[in-house]
Simulated scan of single mutants.
Amino acid sequence: MPHRPPPGTPAAALVVVVAAALAAGACSPRAEEPAPRTARDATTERPAPTRSREVPGDTRTPPAPPFIEAATWADSDYGVTLEVAPSTAGRGASGIDDSYAAWQEVLRLVPEADAPGMWEQFDCHWTWARLLEPDKPTWNVEPWRPVVSPERMLAEGCNPGGPEV
């Protein structure tokens, strides 16, 4: 039975926002390109990270790496979880390839995070959790969660196959 967030929670709000984004075809800045299957694919198939998009007349300097403050393993009632703490720059980054740069930082800190489904969970948190819960101290990604379609990932609040840890 799929996990459904209770009404009125940030995860429920995520489902509403995601459904609207899916309907509008705005799942990613590069919707025509599939997500990398593993972090190694992100390294080999994606261009080097670029600066955040520049808006004419905007004199602010875009956030620069590091985007990740820490990444550490912890135990939960369901299995191990990788607690990823974004930095202030990571919370404000909006460059088209900043998520890939941030994931590479996670892998430098915790190389064994390069497991099926981990990138997809991270990317979901990067894309959606930063908007809905901007002050959440960590994003948890778990190797025990199933690899699912982007639609299911979003429908289950970035936590497929079980509750938020």
Rank of each mutant, 00 (worst) to 15 (best):
M1C: 07
S99I: 07
P62S: 09
S99V: 13
P137R: 13
V141R: 13
P47S: 09
A13C: 00
C158W: 03
R145T: 14
A48I: 01
A48H: 05
E151Y: 02
E54I: 04
A64W: 08
D123E: 11
D135Y: 14
L109D: 02
E151L: 11
L131V: 12
A113M: 09
S94F: 09
A13T: 04
R152T: 15
E156G: 15
R91W: 11
E33Y: 07
R108A: 15
C27M: 07
S76Q: 05
Q104V: 01
R4H: 08
P163F: 01
A35Q: 13
D75V: 03
N140C: 14
C27S: 06
T72Y: 01
R37Q: 08
P163G: 12
P7L: 00
T72V: 10
C124D: 05
V106L: 02
G162P: 05
T127M: 12
L132F: 10
G25M: 02
G117H: 06
P49I: 07
P134G: 14
E83I: 00
R46H: 04
P36Y: 03
P5M: 01
T88L: 13
R46E: 05
R53T: 12
V106K: 04
A35W: 14
A21E: 07
D135F: 15
T9L: 02
Y100K: 09
L22I: 01
